[in-house]
Design a protein around this nucleic acid. Structure first.
Lengths: 341, 341
DNA sequence: CAGGCCAGATAAAAGGATTTACTTGGGGGA
DNA sequence: TCCCCCAAGTAAATCCTTTTATCTGGCCTG
């Protein structure tokens, strides 16, 4: 049986109250000897407070609930690692739950985590939240009484804090880079799902084209699953067209596209420029290091936890909306469009 | 305020006992109407049991504590994802804690998780457990009263269940493959730290050499951090020698080695064969897909949770020691040693 | 010498469930 | 008529801490 506060009380001939007061450094009127006795006894018996009981009475568990689509995905793993570091730095822990990209699971996970008394919820959804579940989410967020922080997603009706990347600016930079290299016919590979993030990125791409007076052709846009397979498939269709560059929704899709490009006998960047998004660690390691848009996933994770903790302290008063700026990383998969052609 | 069992009792004019009995499907003598009334009222008020209170009294939280060195590492992320899937399948959740590769953090994390009432602990350590902390670990594992499952590490004195890869067989297969291709001078890149896993792998390599009567030269072994940087550095030294193949402790190191190899103007596999270990997703995506040893990380994760859950049910009686068999994946980074040379 | 005050504590309630042992009232059998 | 039993419940203890309100005995002061 685990040693409890009562064991220490019995051992020291003092009361549980005394033990609790001393071990929690609460103001108390115990004599110096009693204090020391309690402390040393606790140490000797290796007393560790039962956090379930503590949480029950204080209504604080020092635990953050994290709902994430897929921890095996490099991007989310990095995000989670930043969150864990920041949380632990402040003495918090993370209870996490994978949803396997299913939005239904996500709501269930939220409820479950909240029933475990987490002090705040962090929600990073990837797949679409449809109209029906949107209402359920909203209701839950409204009535759950703890701060919720949304990552990489905007949903004003939820009325919760958000931390995200400026996706539009990232895509804008990427496409502007291609345009400045002389590319005029650019293919776009985006995500299947009707989501916030890909939409924002497409808007950034369009804006870049508009500013340079280059037409944005919808026929040059293909979508697919955001995996290497999805990228490969989309590239196949797009390579039929007279394009000189390709912009992918993320690095994984770019890797897939690269495979297809090479299978067709084309070289990057000689025949085609290629840009990704995310800057996953592997992008720098490719034989042709990938030009991409860096998303500071680790920092986003840390900031998300900071926002959550500050809301916990605030008592959920103020909502924050934080946007990180991306950075274009020019490597070797892009170059000026060749003259002859 | 959250709705509690008392609220339902008041609303239905029944007792908390009745509510608890009905909602938990415990044998009870309540009338069909009363049951229905309780169920519908719970539904209507959106009652969710407070798991802190449940855990306090039942001494079961349906939560598994996971201590992991680095969730941003592809291998561990995959492991964790398998664990989460299996855990949720049985209604369990995972409380996780990163240690940033520091063994000191790991012990602290274990204690913290156990104070939160997890039902079992899963420990995946990467860095070395030295003699002093080994004793502390042992003491903790002995006295913490809950099952502990060790992943990818053997430590008989801990007397806990283990789930791991047959590292020796994996390395044996990899090196045998190189030997069968005619390679006689093979370089080995292993990990810096004096750990169980790299040691096992080196033993497998040695055995393969011994069986083929090929001398195993310690001068052809270099160690480094298990990152791309570490691999690149180690490769630099080894490429001075008349080697025709290189076996790396893991894929990340192989990626680093590949970079160095190419910088020296050598080609893979024409001039040098290269083998990794782990089969992380990127290995198949390289321009020269990497021959490597597949480690079923996802399956290992699932099995680990199964072991933990079975120990929980058993009351920690039996200890299991499960070993997964690796699989050599031959891709394009290895080929027969060329005649002329 | 009564009253107040202070040092040094503690009793008891609360937090939200589970679970064991007990209660109550009515009907049936001998 | 008496007793027993059964259906339908409930009271109260318990899990472990925190926290508020209270207690006790001695000393000082007027």
């Amino acid at each position: 049986m685990r040693v409890t506060i009562k064991d220490i009380a019995r051992e020291t001939n003092l009361s549980p109250t005394a033990v609790s007061l001393v071990l929690n450094h609460k103001p108390n009127k115990l004599s110096a000897e009693s204090r020391e006795l309690i402390r040393s006894t606790a140490e000797r018996l290796r007393y560790v407070p039962n956090q379930l009981a503590v949480g029950l009475v204080t209504r604080q568990t020092h635990t953050l609930g994290l709902v994430i689509p897929d921890i095996a995905n490099q991007y989310y793993a990095t995000l989670a690692s930043g969150m864990d570091v920041e949380a632990r730095k402040h003495g918090w822990n993370i209870l996490f739950s994978n949803t396997d990209d299913q939005s239904k699971n996500a709501l269930e996970s939220l409820k479950l985590l909240s029933s475990r008394g987490v002090d705040a919820l962090i929600l990073a959804v990837a797949s679409d939240i449809n109209a029906q579940s949107r209402a359920e989410y909203r209701e839950f967020i409204q009535q759950c009484n703890i701060p919720v922080v949304l990552v990489n997603h905007e949903e004003p009706s939820f009325r919760c804090s958000t931390v995200k990347l400026n996706n539009k600016a990232g895509a804008y930079d990427a496409v502007s880079h291609l345009l400045s290299l002389g590319h005029r016919r650019i293919a776009y590979i985006t995500s299947d799902e009707d989501l916030h993030t890909p939409t924002e990125r497409m808007l950034g791409a369009m804006q870049a084209c508009a500013e340079m007076d280059v037409p944005f052709l919808t026929e040059d846009v293909r979508s697919g699953q955001y995996t290497t397979g999805g990228g490969a498939l989309a590239a196949e269709a797009l390579l039929q067209k007279p394009i000189t560059a390709m912009f992918c929704f993320n690095d994984m899709m770019a890797f897939g596209a690269l495979k297809t490009i090479r299978q067709m006998g084309l070289r990057v960047p000689e025949d085609l420029s290629l840009v990704g998004f995310d800057d996953v660690p592997f992008s720098a390691l490719l034989d042709v290091p990938l030009t991409t848009v860096r998303q500071p996933a680790y920092e986003i994770g840390r900031e998300t936890v900071r926002v959550a903790l500050s809301e916990i302290e605030d008592g959920k008063r103020s909502k924050q909306h934080i946007q990180f700026e991306p950075e274009l990383i020019v490597r070797q998969s892009t170059r000026a469009v060749s003259k002859e052609k």
